[in-house]
Amino acid sequence: MELDDAYANAAYIPGAADYPTRWADQAEAFRTQLSVVGRARLGLMYGHGTRQVLDLFLPDGPAAGLMVFVHGGYWLKFDRSYWSHLAQGALANGWAVAMPSYDLCPRVRISDITRQIAQAITVCAHEIPGPIRLAGHSAGGHLVARMCAPDVLPEDVAARLVHVMPISPVSDIAPLMQTSMNADLKIDPTEAKAESPVFQPAPEVPVTVWVGARERPVFLDQAEWLAKAWDCAHVVQKGKHHFDVIDGLADPNSDMVTRLLGVAE
């Protein structure tokens, strides 16, 4: 299809095939570590499907609030088990961290996944009091951006949002209709308009759009489109590509975590 190469990340990242195994190994080791000390609540159901499950990691002491990380994979692959280690940065700063899985296309539509993520955040919000911060990567960046739209989250949950960080987000899903992925995504013009964050009203909650400087041009464009549409903060991180741009979430002192959690506020 016309835009297959433009939206292909792995082909342009050295050692790309090694990343999923590395992520999974790091995530499993971290879950084991937190489970031993009783700070991991694994496999919490937030819906009726077998993939509508989340892991909740707890800080050492009362939680300052809730951070939710939503994974990517073009709404087609991965689950929460690959990313647990990315909770380290927020946990070390006193925040509880939730990581949901969700149903994948073509079993469901992107609009269904949006509703599932809203439900996952709502369930977590009932477990952890205080402010809520959202981060998501790639398709997950799209999904956390969608949480800023009116009437997606319940009013009481939306009122608790204090910062949203779409990382390398797909902010306009219409171009994906010109990729072979759309055989499974099944995006049509109506859904493209309804599910693209660039067409949402600019939210009142602070947003930081984050992207790696070494990403594919279309992802630099997608990030810029959202930052301009919402007139929000926009960080282009030097030296980072689509797969390692999320590494900062695991570092309690990284610029990404500092911005996400408002440590310097």
Rank of each mutant, 00 (worst) to 15 (best):
Ala158Thr: 07
Ala98Trp: 09
Pro169Asn: 08
Val205Phe: 07
Met99Trp: 02
Val170Gln: 02
Gln119His: 09
Ala158Glu: 12
Gln116Asn: 13
Met165Phe: 00
Ala90Trp: 03
Gln119Cys: 14
Ala98Gln: 05
Ala90Met: 12
Val209Phe: 01
Glu215Phe: 03
Met177Glu: 06
Val164Phe: 03
Met177Cys: 00
Gly136Ala: 00
Gly212Tyr: 04
Ile110Cys: 03
Val108Ser: 12
Phe219Cys: 07
Ala135Val: 15
Pro189Gln: 10
Ala96Leu: 10
Pro206Lys: 09
Trp95Gly: 12
Ser168Cys: 12
Gly94Arg: 08
Val211His: 01
Ala174Arg: 14
Ala118Arg: 11
Ala120Tyr: 12
Met177Phe: 03
Pro169Cys: 00
Val164Pro: 01
Pro197Ser: 04
Arg216Gly: 09
Ser111Glu: 15
Ala159Ile: 12
Met99Ser: 07
Ala159Leu: 13
Pro154Ile: 10
Lys186His: 14
Asp151His: 15
Asp112Tyr: 01
Ile173Arg: 03
Ala159Ser: 15
Pro201Trp: 05
Pro150Thr: 14
Ile128Trp: 08
Pro169Trp: 03
Leu104His: 06
Ala120Ser: 14
Ala192Leu: 06
Asp103Glu: 15
Ser111Trp: 01
Asn93Gly: 00
Val162Tyr: 09
Asp184Trp: 09
Ser168Lys: 00
Val108Thr: 07
Val170Ser: 04
Ile113Ala: 04
Asp184Ala: 15
